[in-house]
Amino acid sequence: MKKFIIGRREKISLPEWDLDMISSKVDTGAYTNAIHCEWMEEKEINGKKILEFKLLSPKHRLYNGKLIQTEKYSQKKVKNSFGGAELRYKVSTKVLMFNQEFETEFTLSDRSKMRNAILLGRKMLKGKFIVDVDETNLSKKHKASQP
């Protein structure tokens, strides 16, 4: 499979969550992807466990207030950027980059103190991308160059 070159920051789309061309930080030191989430709630609906959540901060320019519900989620112990262990919800969705769509996982995390609402980790990058730290937004430039 051809590997795409990406920069240290990339614009990605998450079509199932109605987020288009959202800025994300590429972090080869992180294993999993993370996305900013300030509100999440586990519920039982018709005997099934459901996770409801809203992504991003209401202050974020791409915040859409969409209530997302999923039965496909789990909890994962993650080492946060300060070295402490945290229990986070993990959900799956499709990511669109370079006109390619692939399934990947995100942990729901408070990234309010971080510059980027999304962090892309090694698990998603492996086998698909090569990181060039001199560059940014190569997937967006690729989209613009398409006929």
Rank of each mutant, 00 (worst) to 15 (best):
M1P: 07
K2L: 09
E10H: 07
I12C: 12
P15F: 01
P15T: 05
E16H: 13
L19R: 01
D20P: 01
D20L: 13
D20F: 15
I22K: 05
I22W: 13
S23G: 15
S24D: 05
S24V: 01
T28F: 04
A30C: 08
A34F: 00
H36Q: 05
E44P: 05
I45C: 02
K48G: 07
K48I: 04
I50W: 08
L51K: 11
E52S: 09
F53D: 02
F53V: 03
H60W: 07
R61T: 10
N64E: 07
N64R: 08
G65C: 00
K66Y: 00
L67D: 02
Q69G: 01
S74I: 06
Q75L: 15
Q75F: 14
K77I: 01
K77E: 04
K79D: 13
S81T: 14
F82E: 14
G83M: 07
G83C: 12
G84Y: 13
A85D: 15
R88H: 03
R88P: 08
R88A: 05
K90L: 15
S92I: 01
V95F: 13
L96W: 03
M97S: 11
E101V: 13
F106G: 02
D110F: 05
R111T: 14
R111Q: 12
R111K: 14
S112W: 11
K113H: 15
I118W: 12
G121H: 02
R122C: 00
K123H: 12
K123C: 03
M124R: 01
M124H: 03
K126G: 09
K126F: 06
I130S: 00
I130D: 03
V133F: 08
T136F: 06
N137L: 05
N137V: 04
K143Y: 01
S145K: 11
